[in-house]
Design a protein around this nucleic acid. Structure first.
Length: 325
DNA sequence: AAAGCGTGGTG
DNA sequence: TCACCAAGCTT
């Protein structure tokens, strides 16, 4: 494997020492500097951890916190969520984004309640089979909820590995086999140590080894960092941002905001454009409709977006109108 | 396997 | 301002 020091190749023993040093340094740093997050508390249930992991997919911690607390209060066990309509999960999702995650969490809760007697599967393989759970989330829940030795590979850990070991500013655009291999090689043999390494590396990426302006002065492993040693070379490629203005996604988002605000089905004609005054339930719906209309989507784009939401199960037909499922 | 999927804070 | 970015998954 690549090793985090310059110069002559290390013997296997020396390399193990270097890696052991990284393990210790990060564990100490984590113990002193980690954020106090509720899903890291020892009394947090596996369900709470799963919910947090799904909410944290592409969504920052600060926005997840209040919604996660609300979900835990309202649905402390998977069966509690499974007993509700899926639309309640979508509504309670609020503005976290990617609302299909709420749908999948509801579906996962149903599987857990119906097929697992209400307890989460405790293996990566079992977790991976749940709706909305991919490689990252399965490994994270296996490690953080069940103490298993699993190589967790998220965007933070990928960036830490890219810099610390590979000497590159950013990881490749998509996860490579080499990255999985490296993550596996760096993982401590001991289960407890492996869990601590996973959280610590993730935390380091989140608050020190950040994408934009890394705080290398506060980094516990800066002296071992290959990227630093190489003079912090710039990224070898330009990440292409996600289009937003004028896209179906923007329209879908505006439609979902309408449905979340509505307590009854919204007639289709109201989505199409500002028309004659409409009796709504008081204002929030009208305000979200106005936001949608301000985007002025072409009729075919609006149609495509509505059909997409129906196909995805994020919207349903009721009495000739649209509502949450 | 590349593209699609929300949202809001920030440099 | 505006593009980038955030504990990815699915098809």
């Amino acid at each position: 494997m690549a090793h985090p020091t310059r110069g002559a190749p290390l013997t296997a023993t020396a390399e193990a020492d270097v890696i052991g040093g990284l393990h210790r340094a990060l564990a100490d740093w984590f113990a002193a500097e980690a954020r106090d997050l509720p899903w890291r508390h020892p009394d947090c249930s596996p369900w709470g951890i799963l919910v947090s992991e799904v909410m944290l997919q592409q969504t920052p911690v600060v926005r997840v916190l209040p919604v996660w607390r609300e979900w835990m209060k309202r649905w402390p066990r998977p069966a509690d969520l499974a007993a509700e309509a899926a639309g309640e999960a979508v509504r309670a999702w609020g503005r976290l984004g990617y609302p299909r995650r709420a749908l999948r969490l509801h579906a996962a809760a149903t599987v857990i309640a119906d097929e697992y007697g209400g307890s989460l599967p405790d293996t990566e393989e079992g977790l991976l089979a749940l709706p909305g759970v991919g490689g990252y989330t399965a490994a994270a829940v296996a490690a953080f909820a069940f103490g298993r030795r699993a190589a967790v590979v998220d965007t933070n850990i990928r960036r830490v590995h890219a810099r610390l070991v590979r000497g590159e500013a950013l990881p490749a655009p998509s996860l490579t086999a080499a990255e999985r291999r490296l993550a596996e090689e760096l993982l401590p043999d001991d289960r407890g140590a492996s869990v601590r390494w996973n959280v610590a590396a993730m935390e380091l990426g989140a608050i020190v080894c950040t994408a934009r302006s890394p705080r290398c002065d506060a980094c516990p492993v800066a002296s071992a960092c290959a990227w630093r040693a190489a003079g912090e070379p710039p990224p070898s490629y330009v990440p292409k941002g996600q289009a937003w203005h004028g896209t179906d996604r923007q329209v879908r988002g505006a439609v979902m905001a309408v449905l979340r605000a509505a307590s009854r089905p919204v007639p289709r004609v109201l989505f199409e454009g500002p028309g004659p005054a409409v009796a709504d339930d008081g204002g929030p719906v009208a305000a979200q409709l106005a936001r949608l209309h301000a985007l002025a989507p072409a009729p075919e784009q609006l149609e495509r977006s509505l059909e997409g939401l129906l196909a995805d199960g994020l919207a349903a037909e009721h009495d000739g109108g649209l509502a949450l499922p």
